[in-house]
Nucleic acid binder design. Structure first.
Length: 552
RNA sequence: GGCCCGUUGGAGAAACGGUUAACUCACAUCCCUCUCAAGGAUGCAUUCACGGGUUCGAAUCCCGUACGGGUCACCA
């Protein structure tokens, strides 16, 4: 068979050769240690936890070695395409500040970075293979392939298009010509040189040493529409783009023999592969991959709506990437993700179960390390999107809000009561007069959790005789003790415990009473701090409100 | 069914043939304390899916079994 003739027959419009592209995309001038990797999603419009994880891992490794990470859009399947799919992905990645050196919407020397724009490049490589007699057209229809499968099943033979089943291999030039004239659809297949009985060894960066039989399947490299399959696009792109490390989900592990063979066919050195385990979910006792459809927590928007900071999500992903990250992070609170050296060896070969509790804990710690101003800025942004009214209130009362957020913040062990921006309103709303005083007292105190309706005189006495905005904490507390003792309450817990019968209660009871009258809550941060944040007038009004409630 | 990968407490996991199986989260109890949050203390795997083997010695090496996952597309 004259392969040159065949090549021209099948791909007449391709006039360049692979040397042209080799020259157009020269190898990168980088140090051996610097890795070149990529994040290569399909344009589905948004990314989910799994792909964010993969993007995070890729960019972290590249950053660690001062290497290159680029964004490539794998849109060779037209059925999957979504309108504005690329923009959605780029937006999501931007939110998480995962930055690329090159790629779709950014540009770069090795573009285009969108596979649908690289058709000519792929076909040039395919034409080369046809010329070499290493690829051929296959005119099998779906039915014919189905029939092959059925007879293989019937004979208990290994499934697939290989060896004697690869009927397209035997077509003569005349037969091919006649098929083409009849307008028959065809694909291009690789003429696999592999032997199923021989074994190859692959050193995976994550999975370690893996052995496979050689690939002997004549895989499709160009689909009926002239677009290459994933396997072929991977070869061409990662070769031309100078990828040194392919980091991808482990569902690709079993394609390694195909990919290695492809590189071998072109006498190219394959990249290193790191097949990372997916994030899984416990679903009624069995583990499965996080599903875009079934699991709300797999969507990035889930965290956005709650207001879990992107940075906290990334820290969680970092702990899944390398568990020793967590220990390091706890020991180096002043350092960030960029300072940690991630290693492939420390990546787990099995899938990690996604744990929301853990993420929330990480988020709490993250919040506790921020300054009040930072929390304020984030909260304002969050509420501007999800609760305009509250956003306006904190915007009007910026200083007051920051003061609230600063309660017990700058101490050795700061409070950890905020796990997400959505928590903040619930935690602090009652400290704004415009929200608190406008509320109906019946709603406010309906639970009357303090259950102390007979002691309203304590409130009057406190505000008239004892209240002084300038008191320090100890002075304040001493005063409250005195107040308590004057009314027959114990001045300390110990006193009360030792002699319960002689007291009506203890200081705590009084604090609880004041707290409830002031905030309608039984649980708040430090009472002293709360009192400092409210002016005398506000305190009085709140007490009156409480008394009004009791009188009705 | 073939081919691959995995299996250490409720969860993430450490250990890379050598005494009592790290650490973090969760959970429980206690302490501190004006409530909450935080913090402190303690508890939570006599045992590393199971069975056999190698070895003076195994969670670690070998074989087998079970279970879970992936893949066998003109999807990525």
């Amino acid at each position: 068979m004259n392969h040159n003739l065949l090549a021209d027959l099948l791909l007449p419009e391709i006039t360049k050769d692979i040397e042209y592209y080799r020259e157009k995309y020269p190898s990168r001038n980088l140090d051996k240690k610097q890795i070149v990797t990529r994040f290569a999603p399909s344009p589905t419009g948004f990314i989910h936890m799994g792909s964010l994880y993969s993007a995070f891992v890729s960019s972290s490794f590249a950053a660690n070695t001062n290497g290159v990470v680029f964004l490539r859009i794998e849109d060779t399947d037209k059925k999957r395409e979504v309108e504005n799919g690329i923009e959605g992905i780029v937006d999501d990645l931007k939110k998480y500040s995962i930055n690329f050196d090159e790629g779709a919407t950014i540009g770069g020397e090795y573009g285009p970075y969108i596979q649908s724009e690289r058709k000519e490049i792929y076909q040039t490589f395919i034409k080369h293979l046809i010329r070499e007699g290493l690829a051929y057209p296959c005119f099998c229809s779906e039915e014919e392939l189905e029939n092959i499968r059925k007879s293989q099943e019937a004979n208990k033979e290994r499934l697939g298009y290989y060896g004697k089943w690869a009927i397209g291999r035997n077509l003569t030039l005349e037969e091919i010509q006649s098929n083409l004239e009849q307008g028959k659809k065809y694909t291009i297949r690789l003429k696999s040189p592999g032997d199923f009985n021989r074994r190859i060894t692959h050193m995976d960066l994550v999975k370690g040493k893996v052995e496979f039989p050689e690939n002997d399947l004549d895989i499709v490299i160009m689909k009926g529409d002239g677009i290459p399959t994933y396997h072929f696009a991977h070869l061409v792109d990662d070769y031309l783009m100078g990828t040194t490390h392919v980091i991808r989900g482990d569902e690709w592990l079993s394609s390694v023999p195909v990919h290695l063979q492809l590189f071998q066919t072109f006498k190219l050195e394959p990249p290193k592969y790191a097949h990372i385990s997916p994030i899984v979910k416990n679903d009624g006792g069995s583990r499965r991959k996080l599903s875009k459809r079934k699991d709300p927590e797999s969507a990035i928007s889930f965290y956005h709506q709650k207001g879990i900071p992107e940075e906290a999500v990334k820290i969680y992903l970092a702990t899944l990437t390398n568990t020793n990250f967590e220990e390091w992070y706890n020991q180096n609170p002043d350092k960030g993700l960029k300072d940690f050296n991630f290693t492939f060896e420390k990546m787990n070969a099995s899938g990690a179960l996604f744990d929301l509790d853990k993420l929330i804990n990480i988020s709490k710690t993250y919040f506790s390390r921020l300054s009040g101003e930072e929390v304020y800025a984030g909260a304002l942004k969050y509420y501007l999107e999800y609760d305009k009214e509250f956003a306006c209130i904190i915007e009007r009362n910026k200083e007051h809000t920051i003061n609230i957020l600063n309660i017990e913040r700058y101490i050795k062990k700061p409070r950890k009561d905020i796990s997400a921006y959505e928590d903040i309103k619930e935690e602090i709303w009652y400290l704004f007069d415009e929200l608190y005083l406008d509320k109906d007292e019946k709603d406010l105190f309906k639970n009357n959790e303090a259950d102390l309706e007979h002691e309203t005189s304590i409130l009057d006495e406190y505000i008239d005789k004892y209240y002084d905005k300038d008191d320090d904490k100890q002075t304040w507390f001493n005063k409250v003790k005195e107040l308590a003792q004057n009314h027959g309450y114990a001045g300390s817990m110990k006193e009360y415990r030792d002699n319960q019968d002689s007291f009506k209660g203890h200081v705590g009871t009084i604090c609880e009473y004041i707290r409830f009258a002031l905030t309608s809550k039984t649980k708040t941060p430090d009472l002293y701090e709360i009192l400092k944040l409210l002016d005398k007038d506000s305190i009085k009004k709140r007490f009156i409100k409480f008394k009004t409630f009791l009188n009705n």
